[in-house]
Design a protein around this nucleic acid. Structure first.
Length: 498
RNA sequence: GCCCCCGUAGCUCAACGGAUAGAGUAGGAGUUUCCGGAACUUCUGAUAGGUGUUCAAUUCACCUCGGGGGCACCA
């Protein structure tokens, strides 16, 4: 509706948040001297525009010079008919037709349990995936698994040290934690871990075998979690996938010339000219790759395979510097076309109730599966005796809690907050949907309202519905699913009031 | 020390540079025989401090204070 009006008007509108100011409002007159007068002139001209008066029944100048528009009752009812026709397609569009967006999300680390820390990336990433899909973009979801790196050196070292033959993910976590405990008193361990990772990169068959077992054990757990969360990700090219890509890169002379020898013989990419003081570590002094090497190779691969317009990294804010370096290096090396937008969403973290970061190294991670189980248990306690209903409600509460926060802000993890089933929550929305469906099931078709006037509550719901497509669009384009949550909560309130 | 993010009601969170800063929760007062009371109505209550830019600042810039994250061989 907004875009239709804007097209007729030839200038931009904004949705009002106060019904006293109509449905849409224009502020163009405010940018000029004597705005009130100009607004009046514009309004007078608009009042005789037939295209406009078909949709709008009131145009008023208010305040310092806003031009406010009230939609016609017919336009609201018309929109309602459209919703009935298009059903779940309502709100979708082809605005992004022909454009490709890659979303890099979830990306848990192999050999570490799926922690609370991966919830935001998984949930927000999946939401962005759906949002961009709704706008007609070609969307590629890629789970950039942390399945490569020195962490495996650490595990390999421990597995060999303790001669462990069988392991599941819990055992791997124990070994990881134990490694760091030992490393506190013996600094040579870090060195040993790096050696083991080097071996892995060089294709040592024993190292590779153990690595594969770690991957298999972890994937089993991850799949279980994704199933619980109702999240599917198109691809899972983990970091290990980019081995050959990295080797190719290293042989490219155009690429090589940007590499500089750093301290102790490491190869770095100097980004000082790009305004970033910390250089990007490309190869460690022992010649092993780093996270950054693999991410650069990943960009190259994605560019070639999908030719994207945007790559969204749904990764936490603690990696802001890394992505700043990565994006700058990718531009410097010409790995992507000029037009490609590289976005790091930099979501806030789940913090412990004391306001501090959860630390994986000290083994303080909260396992996501425990959180989900607890959520289902609490939902059951509230009277959802059926297992599947309890899952919908409990896990829905967690997902909604995550999505409703603005992406940038930190989230304090407190059971009482996360599992609040009342007010602005997932269950509240679910309840409203159930109630609506129940009403619809009982409503007789012939009682459908065609003529007559709308009361305030009816108009309020209809006005809100008009804005649904706008809510989807802004949530996607601003990488902020919470805007859609805001909208849905507002709509649910209006509906319940009605 | 340097860089980034955050600071809004008692608490948890919203608000493309726009008008009277919205919700939830907690607390007070209510909801007629009907539709799903996990609901609804109503009252109380907030932009950390300062200086700028602007017709207009919670929003932008700079400074101070407070919290979080990060700063080349972890990812």
């Amino acid at each position: 509706m907004k875009t239709v009006l804007e097209k007729i008007l030839g200038f931009g509108l904004e949705a009002t948040d106060n019904p006293a100011f109509g449905d849409y409002s224009a502020n163009i007159a405010l940018q000029h001297g004597s705005p009130k007068k100009i607004a009046e002139e514009i309004a007078e001209k608009l009042k005789v525009n037939k295209d406009l008066t078909n949709l709008v029944d009131r145009i008023e100048v208010a305040g310092p010079g806003f031009i406010n528009f009230w939609l016609k009752k017919e336009a609201l009812l018309d929109n309602l008919s459209q919703i009935e026709e298009r059903k779940e397609k309502y709100g979708t569009s082809d605005a992004g037709k022909g454009k490709t967006v890659i979303i890099d999300y979830s990306s848990p680390n192999i050999a570490k349990p799926f922690g609370i820390g991966h919830l935001r990336s998984t949930i927000i990433g999946a939401a962005l995936y759906n949002l961009y899909g709704a706008l007609g973009y070609t969307v590629v979801g890629d789970n950039h698994l942390g399945d490569w790196g020195t962490q495996f050196g650490k595990l390999l070292y421990m597995i060999k040290l303790k001669n462990v033959a069988d392991f599941d993910i819990a055992k791997l976590e124990d070994l990881y934690v134990e490694f760091h405990k030992l490393a506190e008193t013996d600094s040579s361990l870090e060195e040993s871990a790096r050696e083991w990772f080097k071996k892995l990169e060089e294709g040592d068959s024993e190292a590779k075998d153990i690595w594969q077992k770690c991957v298999d054990a972890s994937m089993e757990e991850f799949d279980r979690i994704y199933k619980l969360l109702g999240v599917k990700i198109d691809f899972a090219f983990g970091e290990s996938y980019y081995e050959s890509e990295m080797k190719q890169m290293m042989q490219d002379p155009g690429f090589k010339k940007h590499l500089v020898k750093g301290e102790d013989g490491a190869l770095i990419i100097d980004l000082a000219k790009e305004g970033i003081g910390t250089p990007l570590m490309f190869l460690k002094s022992d010649g092993a790759t780093t996270y950054a090497t693999r991410d650069l190779a990943t960009i190259k691969f994605r560019e070639r395979k999908w030719d994207p317009d945007t790559i969204i990294y749904e990764v936490g804010a603690e990696q802001s510097l890394h992505f700043k370096q990565l994006f700058a290096a990718a531009r410097l090396l010409g790995l992507v076309k000029e037009r490609v937008k590289l976005i790091h969403t930099a979501h806030g973290l789940y913090l412990a109730p004391d306001g501090k970061k959860f630390s994986t190294r000290k083994g303080k991670t909260i396992k996501l599966e425990e959180v989900l189980d607890e959520a289902v248990k609490r939902a059951k306690k509230l009277g959802n005796s059926q297992e599947n209903v309890a899952k919908e409600v409990g896990i829905g509460a967690i997902k909604y809690f995550d999505l409703m926060h603005s992406v940038a802000s930190n989230v304090i993890f407190e059971w009482d907050k996360i599992m609040n089933m009342e007010g602005n929550s997932g269950p509240y929305l679910q309840y409203t949907v159930a109630r609506t469906n129940s009403v619809l099931a009982k409503a007789k078709p012939e009682s459908k309202k065609k003529e007559g006037s709308l009361n305030a509550e009816e108009a309020s719901v209809l006005r809100s519905l008009v804005r649904y497509p706008e809510a989807i669009e802004s949530a996607a384009l601003l990488y902020s699913p919470n805007l859609l949550c805001n909208f849905l909560h507002d709509l649910a309130q209006k509906y319940n009031s009605f």
